[in-house]
């Protein structure tokens, strides 16, 4: 129960932060990525100030035995830089450039009631499913 409330609080802050920061506006994202046009660096400040918080937080995590409400930290265990990591990032970057939406802002933007954003989220889930099907991960 406690962990679900933390997840809710975290989600509320996350969604509010995306909207306040401008990440939910695809036009803003496109202007951030358009370095050859009139470049709008705003969204760099979103990631920069988020990192101001997460850097010390993860420094604490590295020195801690366990989280406050759970038994253990569940962190990624892969270390090697492999083809799926880089190819996946390439594909994600292309999609991000086309629509100006990444997964977080797409979810947060469901609040706007835009049917196009809903379509994006539906096909995004389909894409995740397709990846699992084609890589044999579907029945884990």
């Amino acid at each position: 129960m406690k962990t679900a409330l933390i997840a809710l609080l975290s989600g509320l802050l996350f969604g509010a932060g995306l909207a306040l920061g401008g990440m939910t506006d695809p036009a803003k994202v496109a202007s951030f990525l358009d370095v050859a046009g009139l470049w709008d660096p705003s969204l760099g400040f979103v990631m920069g100030s988020a990192l101001l918080i997460t850097f010390p937080v993860f420094w604490w995590v590295r020195r801690s035995q366990q989280p406050l409400f759970a038994e253990r930290f569940q962190l990624p265990t892969k270390r090697d830089v492999d083809r799926p990591l880089l190819l996946g990032a390439v594909l994600f970057g292309i999609g991000w450039g086309i629509a100006g939406l990444c997964p977080g802002p797409a979810i947060a933007n469901l609040a706007s009631g835009s049917p196009q954003v809903l379509l994006f989220v539906v096909t995004m889930i389909a894409g995740m499913w397709l990846r699992d099907r084609t890589s044999g991960r579907s029945f884990k």
């Binding site: 292309i94 999609g95 629509a99 994006f120 539906v122 096909t123 889930i125 397709l130």
Partner: peptide, 15 residues
């Protein structure tokens, strides 16, 4: 939007 969603989903799962 449909195409971008598809490759964002596939790409983030893969990556």
């Amino acid at each position: 939007m449909a195409a971008a969603g598809l490759i964002v989903g596939y790409g983030t799962r893969m990556g």
